[in-house]
């Protein structure tokens, strides 16, 4: 599981690749720390290379969303695969995130 973050103008883009499961959660949480402090940014969670997400992964997305709201930033989840979209639907997370 890898997480890379880069900046593009007012956007902070976090690209996830691999399986975001319990084992990967600690290192991923550490990797997304710059997103938690970003103020007035558009935060893109690029999931085009993300294969799987567990509850631990959902909690990380949730932390990013909470901190973004506190810092007047906006979060967009981009390019999730069909399985992850199903997870978002089954858990009701589809209403929590703007998904593109």
């Amino acid at each position: 599981m890898t997480t890379t973050i880069h900046e593009n103008g007012n956007q902070l883009i976090a690209a996830f690749a691999g399986r975001l499961d319990t084992a990967a959660a600690v290192s991923t949480m550490e990797a997304v720390k710059p997103l938690l402090e970003a103020a007035n940014k558009e935060i893109i969670l690029d999931c085009s290379e993300l294969e799987y997400i567990s509850s631990s992964g959902l909690r990380i997305f949730l932390s990013i969303r909470k901190e973004a709201a506190a810092h007047s930033s906006k979060v967009i989840v981009r390019s999730i695969n069909a399985d992850i979209r199903q997870v978002f639907m089954m858990t009701g997370f589809i209403s929590l995130f703007e998904i593109q």
Binding site: S54, S55, L58, V87, T91, G92, S95
Partner: peptide, 14 residues
């Protein structure tokens, strides 16, 4: 059949 242990409060209405 999953181990998803977090849901949103929108799930019921959804």
């Amino acid at each position: 059949n999953t181990d998803l242990d977090i849901i949103s409060s929108a799930i019921g209405l959804q």
